[in-house]
Design a protein around this nucleic acid. Sequence first.
DNA 1: TTTCCAGTTGTTATGTTATTACACGTTACA
DNA 2: TGTAACGTGTAATAACATAACAACTGGAAA
Lengths: 159, 159
Amino acid sequence: MSELPFADHDHDHCASGVLDHADKLAEEKGLRLTPVRRAALEILLTGHRAMGAYEVLEQLNAKGFGNQPPVAYRALDFLVDNGLAHRVQRLNAFTACTQPDRHHRPVFLICRDCEQVAEADARDVQDTLSASADRAGFVIERVNVEVLGLCPTCKGKAS
Amino acid sequence: MSELPFADHDHDHCASGVLDHADKLAEEKGLRLTPVRRAALEILLTGHRAMGAYEVLEQLNAKGFGNQPPVAYRALDFLVDNGLAHRVQRLNAFTACTQPDRHHRPVFLICRDCEQVAEADARDVQDTLSASADRAGFVIERVNVEVLGLCPTCKGKAS
DNA sequence: TTTCCAGTTGTTATGTTATTACACGTTACA
DNA sequence: TGTAACGTGTAATAACATAACAACTGGAAA
């Protein structure tokens, strides 16, 4: 967890960077980053927070796409499968991956006050987990680590 | 993760042990382990796997309790709040805590094949996580670690 | 004892999240 | 150019979860 995930930053810059990367990735791997899918990613990036599928759906519909749940779920599933977004189980929500260029194992820090979700790269946590699972003979395929608490900002406000 | 969570064991013995502990805990802490709540715990223990709230509800109803969702959710929430059960986010399901006597930070190993859920105590994982969160200035309140993969048994079958 | 209150249970109704199934169109490629 | 795989759209429904309120229970205060 090398970075301060809740730190201020330039949303537009980080968003366009991710989109650029997504385009590149699509070309390299032959992924089909179709209009709906790209739009869904843009929506997540613009929202810059965890968004529910129905919220994304609404915005997709406003952009001229379908308005039935599968439209959103399919696009979001595609993004998740290809590492461009993550699912936050605790919130039944999705976030754009902020570091899609690094093969990372994300850990989510969820602030219960402001509801912001920060994505941290906690390789050491995952390594510890892998070692433990190996010992138990369990084959890890996907890992989901979610931490609920207070972000630095809200922690300050509370005290 | 000191134990082999998928290892064979005596269900009845482990179940009655947990129930005994729950009774003791209730007395010590003044918790009201009412009939519905105790029944819900029994159901989870008997099922010995992650169960959905509606599945528990059905069985509660069969035992003469109400048949509306809040009946199950309230009992399950009570158990979770008091460390007698856990919620598995990934499955929208609940499991009885198998080690309620230890103040542990559970990690769930979910087999995608047989759908069994093992609860492991991964203190080292949690310690690593705590250290990282501290560095980021994030105050941890609850942690949820869920691992999806193949248990030793299903791993064997697959190959 | 009686009154009151907090907590528990039950029910109705509704809100939220997610999937199944099928029709139709598009793309890639033999 | 046929066809198989994939993508999109829609309708219908399943699965999960909560809000709001009435009735009861058990114990503490008067």
